[in-house]
């Protein structure tokens, strides 16, 4: 089975990949923000003959991208996307990074300045395991969010419901939601019905 690791412990299965890939026409121009070592872009470049470009902050990952033949610009998403011209990409991907930037709202604006369609995978702080820990008075630590409150890079955690509200406020249309669950999650089958409670991550396809 083809799987692709997006970040940390989230793996997109073949089904999810195919869902995303099916929404991307051949030869599209794709920008991946926080592209890591470039696996997803390499996959899309091969499968879709896409013209891909990555943005990555960490030097070693930039070097890995180069080893994969994936073009990459070393930059910090907190500075926006000043290297990229308006409407220069068909798709802009942001994998599990929105919560870690200083101003997620401004990065969203930048994404839709540079590209037409946004693909955002969003870590859901409204997941039942997080809610349970909060209920008992603890800051949640989950498989998707394995950090302590004082050392987490995730400075803007939110729930799927919060994110939907921000999109409405910014006139961003949600074309599709693909809720994802952890391997072995007994409530995985409920994620599609009630994503805000049962999916740990959700992929949004967005347009403005």
């Amino acid at each position: 089975m083809t799987t692709i690791r997006l970040n940390h412990d989230t793996t997109l299965s073949r089904r999810d990949l195919e869902t995303i890939a099916s929404m991307i026409p051949g030869k599209s121009r794709i920008l991946d923000l926080g592209c890591g070592s470039g696996r997803l872009l390499k996959f899309l470049a091969q499968l879709k003959e896409a013209k891909v470009m990555g943005v990555e902050k960490e030097q070693d990952k930039v070097i890995e991208c180069t080893g994969r033949g994936v073009p990459v610009i070393q930059a910090d998403l907190n500075d926006g996307l000043p290297d990229f011209a308006d409407n220069s990409y068909d798709f802009v991907i942001l994998s599990q990074t929105l919560q870690a930037v200083k101003r997620p709202d401004l990065l969203l604006d930048e994404m839709f300045r540079v590209g037409k369609t946004g693909i955002i995978s969003f870590i859901n702080f409204g997941h039942c395991s997080a809610r349970k820990q909060l209920l008992f008075g603890d800051m949640p630590e989950t498989k998707t969010l394995p950090w302590k409150w004082y050392n987490t890079p995730n400075i803007h955690l939110a729930t799927i419901a919060d994110f939907r509200r921000l999109c409405t406020q910014k006139n961003i249309r949600i074309l599709r939601e693909i809720p994802l669950t952890q391997d072995g999650d007994p409530f995985a089958f409920l994620a599609g019905i009630w994503p805000n409670l049962f999916s740990s991550t959700c992929v949004f396809i967005l347009e403005k």
Binding site: Q59, V62, I63, C65, P71, V72, D83, F84, S88
Partner: peptide
Amino acid sequence: SREMVRGMLKNGLDVSYCNIE
């Protein structure tokens, strides 16, 4: 370097940029 990269990107070139620490 970034300025030059920006120009190349605008021209649609296949460019990579690394700012080595």
